[in-house]
């Protein structure tokens, strides 16, 4: 019996941030998503790619009817109405899945075109799926070829050159608010990788007063040591937050950490000093209503990515070239899978 390669996905292209944060899965719950998927009849292999901008399920199935079962499980898992799901998600099959995966891993489909973090996330997802033995010979082969193609594109095109990172956009915005970052006091809440990179970008432009807070104090201390900062207890946030000018949030919390009422009382203590909030978390850590407070500026992941992409027009030509190269490689892989009669 021939198998079919399917992809079910919801990404930043199909779902706004408010929806994506409802679909966010932290590392503790990913195993339970796999458990449910593995129970679906006729599902031979599966791999979940879970980032802040996308949830993608790569599936090898014996029957096309599994689509309904996958959607049901996905909606049940996220407590989401199935009727609304189609607006924010899509299915692909066969060669289109391979093309899509190659584009995703090479950064062409990223919110910030050309970024390199995605390949690490794809590799990490592959590793997790391999550990729990949810991937079989087909997905193994597809993903190995995907890593090779990504490496080739990275080394032989200029897709990653002149990279405009979240950090560099955050620095530009901070300069528009404070002018000089030497005296700006920075607080990082959460120990996420993007948050860390943003702090490093701010440090490179002169910021030197950095504090770190995390729900786990040990993690905060570890990051504080790494970036020559100071650790702050998570419980002390409401009282100390008024001492900071730039606040970067990148926690995995599913609840709001900085509320509108907290910021109102904070600004009462420092009415004339602007505050810059960078919310890099999905789901978001900061209540959007804080922007109604004067002298408060809030940017989330989508805002920063949009600004970064505005500056990427020069890379558009290179994207087309990459896409063409990746398509050729995807076609070759697909032909070989079909030739061997292992996929339909």
């Amino acid at each position: 019996m021939q198998k079919e390669l399917l992809l079910f996905a919801t990404t930043h292209r199909t779902a706004p941030l408010e929806i994506r944060e409802q679909f966010a899965i932290n590392s503790d719950r990913i195993a339970s998503l796999y458990t449910g998927l593995c129970k679906i009849e006729s599902l031979e292999e599966c791999l979940v790619l879970n980032t802040c901008n996308r949830i993608e399920l790569y599936l090898i199935s014996l029957k096309p009817e599994i689509k309904r079962a996958v959607e049901n499980h996905f909606c049940k898992f996220h407590n989401f109405k199935i009727g609304h799901l189609h607006k924010f998600s899509f299915w692909k099959s066969g060669l289109d899945v391979v093309n899509h995966l190659f584009e995703v891993s090479s950064g062409i489909d990223s919110q910030m075109v050309g970024e390199t973090e995605i390949i690490g996330q794809v590799k990490s997802s592959y590793k997790t799926a391999a550990e729990i033995a949810s991937v079989g010979p087909i997905l193994h082969r597809v993903f190995q070829k995907c890593f090779q193609s990504t490496k080739w594109v990275r080394n032989n095109t200029t897709i990653g050159e002149g990279q405009i990172s979240i950090g560099s956009v955050a620095v530009d915005l901070a300069l528009r608010i404070f002018g000089n970052l030497t005296f700006s006091r920075i607080l990082v809440i959460g120990t996420g990788e993007v948050g860390k990179k943003t702090v490093k970008a701010l440090k490179s432009r002169g910021a030197n007063s950095i504090s770190v807070s995390s729900q786990t104090f040990d993690n905060a201390e570890k990051l504080a040591n790494e970036i020559a900062g100071q650790a702050i207890a998570f419980e002390d946030l409401p009282t100390v937050i008024s001492n900071f000018d730039i606040i970067i949030c990148s926690t995995a919390s599913s609840k709001i950490i900085i509320s509108s009422s907290m910021i109102k009382s904070t600004m009462y203590r420092r009415p004339n000093q602007p505050m810059f909030f960078i919310d890099l978390a999905v789901p978001r850590d900061i209540e959007t209503q804080i922007t109604n407070t004067p002298n408060v500026f809030l940017y989330n992941l989508d805002d920063l990515a949009e600004i970064a992409n505005e500056n990427l027009n020069s890379r558009i030509g290179e994207i087309d070239r990459c896409r063409q190269i990746l398509q050729e490689r995807a076609n070759r892989l697909w032909s070989s899978l079909e030739y061997n009669g292992i996929i339909n």
């Binding site: 530009d172 002018g179 000089n180 500026f297 940017y299 805002d303």
Partner: peptide
Amino acid sequence: QNYGLKQKRSKGMANLLPSILQLD
């Protein structure tokens, strides 16, 4: 500058204006 920052506009003259703090 304040309007540009609140409305998340990065194009045009907003990038060339002095910072909010300097202007204040």
